[in-house]
Structure formats: structure tokens, C-alpha cells
Amino acid sequence: MTISKDRILKIANLSKISISEDQIEKLEVEISSILNWVETLNEVDTENIEPMSNSLTNFLQMREDIVNDGEKRSDILSNSPAEDESFFVVPKVIE
């Protein structure tokens, strides 16, 4: 399995990472070789095998519905690269 330049551009766009032309070529080679390598998984018969997302076999513990957090405005904003009137500020988004 090799990956096309077009596909790399698509996933770079989904990942929101800009990549230059020469990076694309390098990534094409690298990712293709990784993909080739992971192909070996196809040797494994996984018919009727449930996927496993976590090694823990217990289930989710639930917390009580109590307000015991929040009201941390200064903590939330203290590392902000752009802030005004307690809002985060980004370039205008057009819907």
C-alpha cells in the first residue's frame, strides 16, 4: 500500500498541518513504507474477533451530579495567546 500525494494533502488538511512541497515527497516515502510494514497485520485471521480499545475489562464509573468545578476564569485565560474581555479571540470565522 502506498499513499498518494493527494491523500497526504487531504490528511494534512484534516490534521490542520501545513506541509511544503518537499515535505510531501518525504512523507510520501515514509508513510508508504510504514503502511507497507503494517500490512503484515493482514496475515492475522481476525474473523469474529471483537476489537479491543482498552485493556481494562471493567466499565465506566459514574460521578454524582455535583457542581464542584468551574469558576476558574483566570486559570483558563492565563496561557491564552489572544484574549479580550475574557473571550478567546481568533480570526473571523465565516459560516
Binding site: I76, D84, E85, F87, F88, V89, V90, K92, V93, I94
Partner: peptide, 13 residues
């Protein structure tokens, strides 16, 4: 919020 500032979008969480 798209209407607080002409150049920016403001985000409240």
C-alpha cells in the same frame, strides 16, 4: 460570537 469585533470571532466556553 461573530459580531463583537469586525475582524475577529470571540469564543466563550
Amino acid at each position: 460570537f461573530h459580531d463583537i469585533d469586525p475582524q475577529s470571532t470571540y469564543i466563550d466556553l
